[in-house]
Design a protein around this nucleic acid. Sequence first.
RNA 1: UGGGGCGUCGCCAAGUGGUAAGGCACCGGAUUUUGAUUCCGGCAUUCCCAGGUUCGAACCCUGGCGCCCCAGCCA
Length: 515
Amino acid sequence: MSTEPQTKDFIRNIVAEDLKNNKNDGRLVTRFPPEPNGYLHIGHAKSICLNFGVAREQGGVCHLRFDDTNPVKEETEFIDAIKTDVSWLGFDWGENEYYTSSYFEQLYQFATQLIRAGKAYVEDLSGEEMRQMRGTLTQAGTNSPCRERSIEDNLDLFERMRNGEFGNGEKVLRAKIDMAAPNMNLRDPAMYRILHAHHHRTGNEWCIYPMYDFAHGQSDSIEQITHSICTLEFADHRPLYDWFIEQLGIFAPRQYEFARLNLGYTVMSKRKLQQLVAQNHVSGWDDPRMPTLVGMRRRGFPARAIRTFCERIGVGKSDSWIDMSVLEDCVREQLNETAPRAMCVIDPIKVVITDYPPKKFFRLGPGREVRLRNSYIIKCNDFICDEHGKITELHCTHDAATLGAAPEGRKVKGIIHWVSQAHALKVEVRQYDRLFNVESPGASKEGVDFIDEMNPDSKEIIPCCYAEPSLANAEIGVPYQFERLGYFCADNESKSDALVFNRTVTLRDSWQKAK
RNA sequence: UGGGGCGUCGCCAAGUGGUAAGGCACCGGAUUUUGAUUCCGGCAUUCCCAGGUUCGAACCCUGGCGCCCCAGCCA
């Protein structure tokens, strides 16, 4: 399991300091709060490693809480997938599995508490009208005519909202804060909206649902979260969460924000990932080119490598763009230690050893001597071309004295991998490259759709490759190094009679660079 | 003269008044039956800019500049 980071980030420092001061009676509770509306990606891994990591390192616990406040977007399928991914990454939430939807009744009571305190009111205005009255970034908004509604009326209306007396969008419960607040989040934000929709957990019990902003902070409070760690864009919401907590007089978790992960040449936004899947630009959430955890797992990235990656990139507040090479290095480091070596020929040329019984496949420059890995040094004497002048066959002789022995005073040009044609397995190999051609898809120019920035060559299928016989037993997802080529693993579409291997990552290639 | 956040090597990132860690990338060189691995060595007189305080500043002060986020009945 991963060790403690070499240097502590600002969040770990804060936690350590709080613990030292016995803040919260020495309790440490964090949480990873995904919305079950999609699959987890490498950006979530950063958050998972942070939240679960801090808790594990400093003797706390980390909750897994599904923030399921929007029934129209959430599905049970995603809950299961998220749990699988978090477990795969190597973290255990034990009994601490929670759902915001479990707090719906409590949240409703909180709302009525605010209404009674004159801090919330039922709005009649339409969404469009509310938007217009909200003002702009530089101009204050104007108060709604409903703002001074009596507490009795608000209580009555809110209850009727719950009872289903109104249609979607007809009413909304708003917090009464300040329409002139420079922080837009404080301009009487919506707390509850009407949604006649089936919820994956509460079914048809509710037709009003709390907004994330009205649910998140209180959920943290209910769970006695001591350190609410989230990404930077929520810093502006912190004053709102604090306001709700203070009005309600309940336990106040402290929120800390860190910069979300950006990886070059891929996309991390859920909306974009969803679009890639929905429009079939990739084969699914688990397409090996996707930055999703399922995709990376299928591609062959070890969970350990992803943990190492999250450790290496650090946690800070400045916008960061991490180069894919950092992730690839973590993957290579891990695989180099664990992957058994095997041989597979992807671009075969027939070689006939004229003075040795079996025939073999491999690559070799004509007129030269070369070493067959784990075998003899052979010498190319002749070659055969097809009608286009392409070499199709090499005729070589072997040096019987070189099996397991160093060449006597001769410099061999190189060592190549090969496979015996008579015994080789015919396999399919899939090689992957970056999904996009630009570092930040969708952010390049005005009006350029990120879909148009996809790399058309991100997936290369090589149907006829020759692998050594031992690979017949390759289990799905288990890594191998195909010598001189890279790390590969059997794809989940692989069948015993139709083996398919994914290239996880290439080996470093200083020769390519030199050219 | 809206609010919030951020600016240390190509990319991340330590450092928080005592004279710039580390990783990735990159460049050398050694070992090697994977042009892999491993191994040595190099890689910011300088911390967005300009002033100021100080014996001494990336760290403190003042003023600029630049980048990111916010006007969902999404999260």
